[in-house]
Design a protein around this nucleic acid. Structure first.
Lengths: 235, 235
DNA sequence: CGGAGCGTTGAGCAACGTCAAAAGACGTGG
DNA sequence: CCACGTCTTTTGACGTTGCTCAACGCTCCG
């Protein structure tokens, strides 16, 4: 049943034999409640986590003015970078109830030591993550609130689509305005205004933990998603 | 003479035997003029570059509104992530005359295949880069122009210090207002105003390609550099 | 001496933050 | 079932930040 889940999302892009190898290494599968902190800044790590269900956020900065620096969707490793780094420089929190699988660093290292292509494949997963960080820097540095929010929704549309979690009409997105504030680097009040603009422009609406997309092309246009490099990175 | 340069900056944190290994792999050393583009988005890469002298910037977005997503100082690999990714999702440009050393991917792969600790060490270098991306996302998302600029100057102070390129009074920083605009995600005009504020606050001054620091503690305070994780990441 | 690039300054405006108030959503315990 | 507290969302008013446009000075170089 883990093999099944491994076929989806980013880990699903790995060759079959590597997914099998991962399935062997996998420790236990755990369910975790909403808004639980999995790691604090500075924590030493001895295992990494693969997200099977739900969303998780990674944060920097003081709680009252924190910035989300990455969001993970099912099929993503949440903190594989903690393996070479052996500590985390940011916090990790579940954005709702999640299901995860643990991968002990010992076992991963042992497998990689004798199989360079496997090591490079895992390395690549962490670099796709880094590519998303760059994409976020670009969004945070150069996008206005409205375009930035649309851009983020388009990113989610794309990434959740790859994980098989999207329909034509939209997808589950259990985020509060406070979450979107952390993601887009704007105030909660302004999040409310921007969502209203997107709604009234007939592009999309966020209600009941779900993003309903009314005009996907328009949303992507508003988010200035073009040759910006998201598809290239993830495909 | 390459061994000597390898002792400084980020690559200098590698164990001696790994630096020796790198020195063996190194291709030719090249000098490149100011404002030369080394790679375009989408380019396939067969070698990676170690920066020996000068500064380089990495950019996303259209030229007229581009965002710098990373800056490299001597001792940094500029595009080691292109090895597992085998293409670049952003542009790389020299910010002044630079000197670089080339490392063919073939040779790096061959060395890593038989030496897992070496592979993990290079992996770790790319993850420190990713950590800096996260730091930039935090700055771009949650810092005002003044604090953000101070934060960036503090980062340069710290990183150039590790590379041995800083004195008590300041360091060479051959950046134009347009560069700082790309770095901080603000307009060129506003860069001018912010620099004036920093100058008149007695913190630092940028003249003649050099940042003169008049009050380092005050600059760090203005940039809200504290337990934000930069030291932890780089040490 | 003329241009090109860079830096500075001011004026007006749009975007966004902060403060405050109030209404809705939701679960908990009585 | 209702009453209650808490969290979330919405809206208005007002102040601040930063952008755009425009003009002008500076420096460097041909």
């Amino acid at each position: 049943m883990l093999e099944e889940t491994l076929a989806k999302g980013l880990v699903g892009t790995l060759p079959r034999r590597m997914r099998a190898k991962l399935a062997e290494i996998a420790g236990d599968t755990v369910e975790i409640g909403s808004r639980q902190s999995l790691a604090q800044e500075g924590d030493a790590q001895t295992e990494s986590i693969l997200l099977l269900d739900g969303l998780m956020g990674r944060y920097m900065g003081p709680r009252e003015r924190r910035q989300m620096v990455a969001i993970q969707v099912p099929g993503d490793f949440v903190d594989l970078h903690a393996l070479p780094l052996d500590k985390l420089d940011h916090e990790v929190e579940s954005l709702g109830p999640v299901r995860i699988a643990r991968f002990p660093h010992d076992a991963l290292r042992a497998a990689m030591a004798g199989d360079y292509p496997f090591a490079e494949a895992l390395w690549k997963l962490t670099l796709i993550d880094a590519g998303l960080h760059r994409y976020w820097s670009y969004r945070l540095g150069r996008f206005r609130a409205l375009a930035g929010m649309a851009n983020f929704f388009a990113e989610m549309d794309h990434r959740l689509g790859r994980a098989g979690l999207r329909t034509e009409e939209g997808f589950a997105l259990p985020l509060t305005h406070a979450d979107l504030s952390d993601i887009c680097g704007i105030s909660q009040v302004h999040v409310s205004r921007v969502l209203k603009d997107l709604r009234e422009a007939g592009l999309c609406a966020l209600q009941g933990g779900r993003l309903t997309i009314h005009d996907r092309a328009g949303l992507y246009r508003m988010g200035e998603v073009s040759g910006a490099g998201l598809e290239e990175l993830l495909d």
